[in-house]
Design a protein around this nucleic acid. Structure first.
Length: 316
DNA sequence: CTCCAGGACACTT
DNA sequence: AAGTGTCATGGA
């Protein structure tokens, strides 16, 4: 199905946000940018197409395919998506900058990095695709997934029609089969099956993602619910909690996190294998270094800084 | 050919 | 409960 929609443009001052870092730090794989040097980013949030164009130093013009009722509603939406209600100055403990001046100097330029309040189902599937793979391949999988199973939209971008794909619904993914879906999961049939099973759980209501957002539910309980599904371990579950369920205390630990914990904070041993016990130990140590309520948020800033400043990774 | 990429899981102790 | 080997796939 193709639909052409009219675009509406709103100006917004996003000076406090590191847009590029937020969109391309590995918390989402659906945003893209025009590869012509211009700072134009585009992506889909809940079937609404967003085009973010840098206008001046601090202001951006944002174009959407679906209209908001008024500008205030638009701003409210953006503030929520980009987490502007969370003060970056509150993310780290007050004593952090004095205890780790060298690290603080490195991460300071990245304090504008935001955790995005993304769609829960999209994040669930995205990070199920992330198991043991590089970001480039993860991105490709998600791209294929949307292209194959998502709804198609055409909107004008820079004067030319541009084709976007929405993220497939739980029902759509639940209705496919592993042999078809494996084309979108790096040829991995097991992963395809796991994704279909998870989509079925969400579609049938067995897995209620919304209730996992409820702060009243302990983080451990929410993680346990996610881990009950095949293909989701602690790490993936924590990613889903942090990036898709707005749980800023969830602290996912991967190879990069392990590296910076060892190198920057002398926590654990980078050579030690990441067993469940070790995972929980490292997580506990991280909660001591950081503010427990924002451990994951701050951790993502550290993660991004580590990848950029130390490992010099340009792929995302 | 080897190693790595934002791991998960079954199978021994 | 905790540790260890295996699985799975494409890209560098």
């Amino acid at each position: 199905m193709t639909q052409t929609e009219k675009l509406k443009t709103v100006k917004k001052d996003l000076r406090s946000i590191d847009i590029e870092g937020s969109l391309f730090s590995g918390q989402c794989f659906r945003w893209d940018y025009l590869r012509n040097g211009k700072q134009i980013y585009f992506g889909v949030i809940d079937d609404n197409i967003f085009i973010i164009k840098k206008a001046k130093q601090t202001s951006y013009t944002i174009t959407t395919s679906k209209n908001f009722s008024h500008d205030e509603a638009f701003h409210e939406f953006m503030n929520n998506y980009f987490c502007l209600d969370i003060d970056p100055n509150e993310l780290f403990p007050v004593e952090f900058s004095e205890r780790y001046p060298g690290i603080w100097k490195l991460i300071k330029p990245y304090l504008g990095l935001k955790i995005l309040r993304q769609n829960a189902f999209e994040t669930l599937i995205t990070f199920m695709c992330a198991q043991g793979l590089g970001m480039k391949i993860i991105r490709r999988q998600i791209s294929y997934l949307a292209k194959e199973y998502g709804e198609q939209y055409t909107v004008p971008l820079e004067g030319k029609p541009f084709i976007y794909y929405g993220f497939p619904s739980p029902e759509t993914l639940a209705g496919t089969n592993p042999e078809s879906l494996r084309l979108c999961t790096n040829n991995n049939c097991i992963r395809a099956k796991n994704i279909i099973d998870a989509a079925k759980s969400v579609a049938s209501g067995v897995l209620d993602l919304e209730c996992l957002k409820d702060p009243e539910m302990p983080l451990e309980t929410a993680r346990k619910r996610l881990c009950a599904h095949s293909g989701i371990g602690y790490k993936i579950a924590d990613c889903i909690l942090l990036f898709g369920l707005h749980r800023f205390s969830a602290f996912p630990i991967d190879t990069h996190v392990r590296q910076y914990l060892a190198s920057w904070f002398s926590v654990g041993d980078a050579l030690q294998t990441l067993t469940q016990k070790n995972y929980l130990f490292l997580q506990d140590q991280a909660l001591r270094l950081l503010k427990p309520e924002f451990a994951g948020f701050a951790g993502h800033i550290l993660f991004h800084s580590w990848r950029k400043e130390i490992k010099h990774l340009t792929t995302y």
